[in-house]
């Protein structure tokens, strides 16, 4: 590895599997001997739970609030494979401003020289849901990260959120913000799921870094408070995460995506709706339709 860490932001619709995927990527990279920091940028502070077996970890913002003298050891812990786990945290639901919290937490981590002192090979920012305000865009602004991976399933609302994230990336990338590393297709179930994500990637000038099928082993591992890499290291699902991690580690081809406009996205979705309807009702053969 070079001295300069690869800084990765991972975004996607709420509930799409960002923390699960990010933690498994971190675990897979650490398993190979890399030094990894994973930073959860979500007030729920549950990004790194499976890396540290659900052990209590004070959040950055709680520490800032309680003390003016915050040290790295107060806000971090070592998880599986030595991954340095940090949770930005934030206000309780319905109070304060979580977006500003992300901004303040990232600022504090920079002040603490975390990235220089820990000398990581990879830093992964697992960021809450959509970019609903400027605060949640902080990890992709002003050179804080090098690239963004957007997790999506083939569900329209997940693709819709991904398209919105592309808008944020294309806004900040020209002025030094992070570029798109690619999509991560997650929770794939239907036979046409992969094709939908591939087609969206093609339409938006992006690419797909990996495909993660839905599997009960993921939920089972989480119930044990572990990543798949740790709980079921020999499973095919663990290998899928390792392949994804290796792809991300090797990728240097970052792009500025071209998000679809509202009408184009609607037309695109309708087109797929028609095809899925025909497929589900056996109106045409699989190969003709999709």
């Amino acid at each position: 590895m070079s001295n300069k860490p690869l800084k990765i932001a991972i975004y996607g619709k709420g509930g799409i599997g960002k923390s699960t995927t990010t933690s498994n990527i971190s675990a897979a990279l650490a398993e190979q001997g890399a030094r990894v920091i994973q930073i959860g940028c979500d007030p729920k502070a549950d990004s790194t739970g499976t890396l540290r077996h659900g052990e209590y970890l004070p959040t950055v913002l709680d520490s800032i609030y309680d003390s003016s003298d915050v040290r790295l050891e107060d806000i971090s812990t070592r998880g599986f494979g030595g991954v340095l786990c940090i949770e930005a945290g934030g206000p309780v639901p319905g109070v304060g401003c979580a977006g500003r919290g992300i901004s303040a937490a990232v600022e504090l981590l920079q002040e603490l020289n975390v990235f220089e002192e820990f000398a990581p090979d990879y830093i992964l920012f697992d960021v809450l849901g959509d970019v609903v305000c400027g605060g949640f865009a902080v990890p992709i602004r002003e050179g804080i990260t090098d690239c963004v991976y957007v997790i999506t399933s083939s569900d329209f609302m997940a693709v819709y959120a991904a398209n919105n994230l592309f808008r944020a990336i294309s806004k900040y990338a020209p002025s030094g913000g992070a570029r798109l590393g690619g999509l991560i297709a997650n929770s794939l179930i239907a036979p046409y799921s992969k094709l939908i994500v591939d087609d969206f990637a093609a339409k938006t000038g992006s690419s797909v870094a990996g495909y993660v099928p839905r599997h009960s082993i993921v939920a089972q591992s989480e119930l044990y408070g572990k990543t798949v890499i740790e709980a079921n290291p020999r499973s095919p699902q663990a290998q899928i995460y390792r392949d994804l991690a290796n792809t991300i580690a090797a990728n240097t081809d970052f792009a500025i995506p071209s998000p679809l406009g509202a009408a184009a996205l609607k037309d695109w979705a309708r087109g797929w709706g028609d095809q899925i309807y025909k497929y589900e009702n056996n109106l045409v053969t699989e190969y003709e339709a999709i």
Binding site: G90, P91, V95, G96, C97, A98, R100, A104
Partner: peptide, 10 residues
Amino acid sequence: TEKDSIMGSE
């Protein structure tokens, strides 16, 4: 302060 704007001012 900024902390109050993040965590709520109640």
